[in-house]
Design a protein around this nucleic acid. Structure first.
Ligand SMILES: [Mn+2]
Ligand SMILES: [Mn+2]
Ligand SMILES: [Zn+2]
Ligand SMILES: [Zn+2]
Lengths: 146, 146
DNA sequence: TCCTAATTTGGAATTATTCTAAGTATTGAC
DNA sequence: GTCAATACTTAGAATAATTCCAAATTAGGA
């Protein structure tokens, strides 16, 4: 990412946070950076490991706090693909998740207008929906064939 | 459920289990009964509480084991709607879950042929997909309006 | 009947997360 | 700038949900 892009991003990050009475701290910035730099839906633990490389004194509790703050102000979403650790995704566009049951890779696929229309049961007020597709990623599917 | 239906169900249950080298035990039958009797997607804890009413000596470990056995042989599916306890669903038809973020109710809606077609990224071998719709159930939505 | 493998069970261990309380940093009124 | 109020970070304790373990029990087949 260029410096210009980064500054813009931090501006947005700041605006989003402050609107909810939150502050833009170095730790929150770092955690958000980690999520933006590698959009592979890491767990809190993985975010912690990556964040520590740039910021060795950051603590696990802070990583949880930061992730929580980012989720609160709508910059990051939580994803539950299987039982176990929650994963985090900074892509706030409408998309669905493809999860490889073999190697654990996760990737996003944008939901365009006509794809995936869910039923609208009478009276139920839909807030949002999550679509998780399980299977084998291209690479694992190829290996399996051999 | 009538006795005839119940016997048939146990026959199916037995066949499904034995195909995988598993046995139809009273505990497994009880756990499955609990799921069939009230299809509200209970957690393991809730299954335990309900199963104990008919079978007071059943243990939590056994409930976990039984649920696992039922999932293994394709009679029950696990559902992750939020972080926290896994829920269990005995409906093996293709359906999506509507979850009320206010009161926690969960219900199934069948997916008919044309609804919810997910993208098929090249190379990815789809096994199955999970659709979770979050929002307010009819009753909570009505209350909210007041 | 006896053997073997499957199952159940209570309790210990583990995993992921949340809570707590103390210290640190930032903001904004004066 | 000073000072108080508020937000934030942190280590470690506590909790929730699940998994693991090893011993006792049960059940199907020679
Ligand atoms: Mn995503
Ligand atoms: Mn269901
Ligand atoms: Zn894979
Ligand atoms: Zn509701």
């Amino acid at each position: 990412m260029s410096l210009v892009e980064k500054n813009k991003m931090n501006g947005d990050l700041n605006k989003r946070l402050t609107t909810g009475g939150l502050r833009l701290t170095p730790q929150r910035q770092q955690v958000y950076d980690v999520l933006i730099q590698k959009r592979d839906h890491p767990t809190a633990e993985e975010v912690f490991i990556r964040a520590k490389q740039a910021m060795p004194d950051i603590s696990m509790a802070t990583v949880y706090n930061c992730l929580d703050a980012l989720v609160q102000c709508g910059l990051v979403r939580q994803v539950q693909l299987e039982r176990g650790a929650t994963r985090f995704c900074p892509n706030m566009e409408e998309h669905c998740h493809y999860y490889c049951d073999e190697c654990g890779t996760v990737f996003d696929v944008a939901l365009t207008g006509n794809s995936a229309v869910v039923p609208r049961p009478k009276g139920f007020k839909i807030d949002h929906y999550e679509i998780a597709v399980h299977g084998l990623c291209a690479s694992c599917a190829a290996k399996r064939k051999k």
